[in-house]
């Protein structure tokens, strides 16, 4: 089918696109355009990852890069100006340091194993064990999920905590609780004035297409997120990806029907509880496995007769916890940025 030689060709082409993109974004003065071009950049890198067959990573990149991070960039832009301040002085020292570092990195890269080399150290350490034995030890077909949630359960717990910390930081800095339902009323005169020269009848007619499509699409996105969540054992996907997709669905609702519509559906309190609840589920599974006589996050003890079943159950619960935390963290950050920008 020509896959042997087209792979590198297409990957190289995408690499060239990415480099051009990065240079262009670096030169860009308009931050709005830069945020948008980052969306394209992330689509490119996700395409790369797909061609490298790292489908789980490509899933994350697609969900985070193309959907959520564009939204969050724009949310941040709402709090600042959308034009980069001109930099009057040229930092020649900075250029020198950056060039030197770049050359050093390029020099170091010469020592790296060739792309796709089967004898690279990374392929010879624990990877063969995971690939060969995970099916038996953990009992699910998607090795990435086994590694993520079981073999490297501690790391994933750490990552979940990091995500949680990000939301706590955003809430502390930007004040997520300020704009509870109705708090924005009366402050958005500016938008109202800007719209007011359009007759009301016209406004309703103009929004109808987007509203109908949004109404139809949001449940579909949420359903797809659940599919990604619970199909993660068998195909690409898992808690992180599902959480981001779920949050993207909710945010789409907010973008079409207004922030207060989402705030009414999911109040700030629920979001704050959800953030903690997910991480608690994860930690709780670990504690439960200790109570049953295993080590922290050793799911095998959940089923004495068939450790693989216990592993499966543990992974399912842990991924569920991750999904909940990530969903509400994304929503919390969105609330924090978007709610702040109308003050």
């Amino acid at each position: 089918m020509g896959g042997e030689f087209t792979g590198p060709f297409v990957e190289m082409l995408l690499f060239i696109f990415m480099i051009g993109m990065a240079l262009y974004i670096a030169r860009m003065r308009s931050l709005f355009t830069a945020a948008m071009l980052f969306g394209i950049f992330s689509l490119l890198s996700a395409g790369m990852l797909t061609l490298m067959d790292a489908v789980d990573v490509a899933f994350t990149e697609a969900a985070v890069g193309a959907g959520i991070s564009t939204v969050l960039f724009l949310g941040a832009l709402g709090l600042t100006t959308s034009e980069e301040a001109p930099d009057s002085k040229h930092g020649w020292t900075a250029l020198l340091i950056v060039t030197a570092t770049g050359l050093l990195l390029a020099y170091a890269a010469l020592d790296m194993p060739a792309y796709g080399d089967p004898n690279a150290p990374i392929q010879l350490h624990v990877a063969p064990h995971y690939l060969k034995d995970s099916e038996q030890e953990v009992g699910i077909p998607n090795v990435v999920t086994s590694v993520l949630a079981s073999y490297r359960g501690y790391d994933t717990f750490g990552e979940t905590t990091v995500v949680l910390t990000a939301a706590v930081g955003a809430i502390l800095l930007l004040g997520g609780g300020v704009g509870r339902v109705g708090a924005g009323k009366g402050r958005d005169d500016e938008g109202g004035r800007r719209m007011s020269d359009t007759p009301i009848k016209m406004r309703v007619r103009e929004t109808v297409i987007l509203r109908v499509v949004g109404k139809a699409l949001v449940p579909f996105i949420l359903l797809f997120a659940l599919y990604v969540q619970f199909h993660g054992d068998y195909g690409p996907g898992g808690g992180f990806q599902a959480g981001v997709i779920f949050a993207a669905g909710l945010i789409l609702h907010a973008l079409i029907f207004g922030l207060d519509a989402l705030r009414r559906a999911i109040p700030q309190v629920v979001v704050e509880i959800g953030i903690a609840a997910g991480a608690l589920i994860y930690g709780g599974v670990g504690v439960a496995s200790m109570v049953l006589g295993g080590e922290f996050l050793h799911y095998g003890v959940f089923d004495r007769h068939n450790p693989a079943h216990g592993q499966h159950l543990g992974i399912l619960l842990v991924e569920f916890g991750v999904g909940i935390t990530v969903t509400f963290v994304m929503v919390a950050i969105f609330y924090a940025f978007a709610g702040r920008s109308r003050q």
């Binding site: 709005f32 724009l74 832009l77 958005d188 907010a254």
Partner: peptide
């Protein structure tokens, strides 16, 4: 997933280009 995310990002871009923030309560045009 791309088809879905692309749409979400697009609506965010539109909303921002119209209102200069994401929180405006007016419906997007």
């Amino acid at each position: 997933l791309y088809a879905l995310m692309n749409f979400t990002g697009m609506i965010a871009l539109l909303r921002f280009s119209k209102f200069d923030n994401l929180a405006n309560d007016e419906q997007i045009k």
